[in-house]
Amino acid sequence: MTQTKNNFDYTIPQHVDRLKASPRLFENALLDKLSRVHWSTPLFVYTPVIILLAVWSLQAFSLPVVLIAGASGYLLWTLTEYFGHRFPFHYKHPSKFGERLHFLIHGVHHDHPNDPLRLVMPVLLSIPIMLIAFLVVRVLFGLPYGYPVLMGFIIGYLAYDMVHYYTHHAHPTTRLGQTLRRLHLMHHFRDPTRGFGVSAPWWDYVFGTQHEKQKRERAAAD
């Protein structure tokens, strides 16, 4: 086993070819098939939901209110993305079950980061997240106020999935695209304990988990 630069037990087997397609995750053929997702699948699943929430929101509120509430939902997603990636996705319990669970949730992606069918979240995982988000916004905001907030949350999720696929398989020419790709690939190939914001990398600067080069540059500027 080779140790990566980190402050927790994240190891990569020496025999792993990290640029090849990932192996089967489940013996059951249907479960394994459902764990492999084409990048466009979330768009087909959630775009109709966003449209429906937008219609309900605009029936209840003015456009400025919908935009502000939607922006709040988007902000909630970016925090969910950051903390979800930083803690549940990278928490490795010392038990065999914990090791297996970690590999299923996120470890397989770090071992095989360029597998195009394991770069967006499987629907079987994203739907429970959206249901929990619906319950949370319903409790916090009530309905219909929760509709535009949930709409912004789901838009943020789609942005995350698309940016994640983009950073692995695109060749960006814009400064923004190049920065997002560079920061995320540094998370994969330099230090997996930093750079948890994929579509919202600013949270790494807020919480001090930016990559060391950026951290030193920021300290020098201060």
Rank of each mutant, 00 (worst) to 15 (best):
H15A: 15
N7G: 04
W203G: 05
H112Q: 10
S40V: 15
D111C: 07
D204C: 06
T78E: 07
V120Q: 06
D17P: 06
Y10D: 00
F89L: 15
W77L: 01
I12N: 00
L19W: 11
P128R: 11
V136L: 14
H171P: 07
V136E: 07
H168N: 06
R216I: 15
V163N: 06
F87T: 11
P172S: 11
S22T: 09
W77T: 05
V136W: 10
M162K: 10
T173H: 07
G156D: 03
T47C: 15
R190F: 00
S62K: 09
F44T: 14
D9A: 01
V66Y: 08
D115V: 11
L131Y: 03
Y145T: 07
R175L: 09
M130I: 15
F97N: 04
P116S: 04
L43W: 13
I132Q: 08
S72R: 11
H90Y: 08
L31K: 09
A220M: 14
H168G: 03
F61M: 06
F189D: 06
H112Y: 15
F141L: 06
D204G: 06
L185E: 04
A21Y: 08
D204A: 06
G73W: 03
G107T: 09
M151W: 00
F207P: 04
N7K: 06
H169A: 02
K96D: 12
G107Q: 08
P148F: 04
K92G: 00
G195R: 04
T173V: 09
I68R: 12
A200R: 02
D222M: 13
V149Q: 04
E99D: 12
W39A: 10
G98E: 05
T47A: 15
L185D: 00
P64F: 11
T193S: 15
L176A: 07
M130A: 14
S57L: 01
K96Y: 02
T80Q: 11
F89E: 11
L117Q: 14
L176N: 01
R175P: 00
R181D: 01
A71S: 15
M130R: 11
G107L: 10
L119V: 12
P192G: 02
F134N: 05
A159W: 03
R218I: 08
Y160H: 10
Q14R: 10
N7R: 10
D32Y: 13
A29Y: 09
D111Q: 13
G177W: 03
H171Y: 13
Y74I: 05
G208D: 01
L150I: 02
F89C: 14
Y147N: 03
S199N: 12
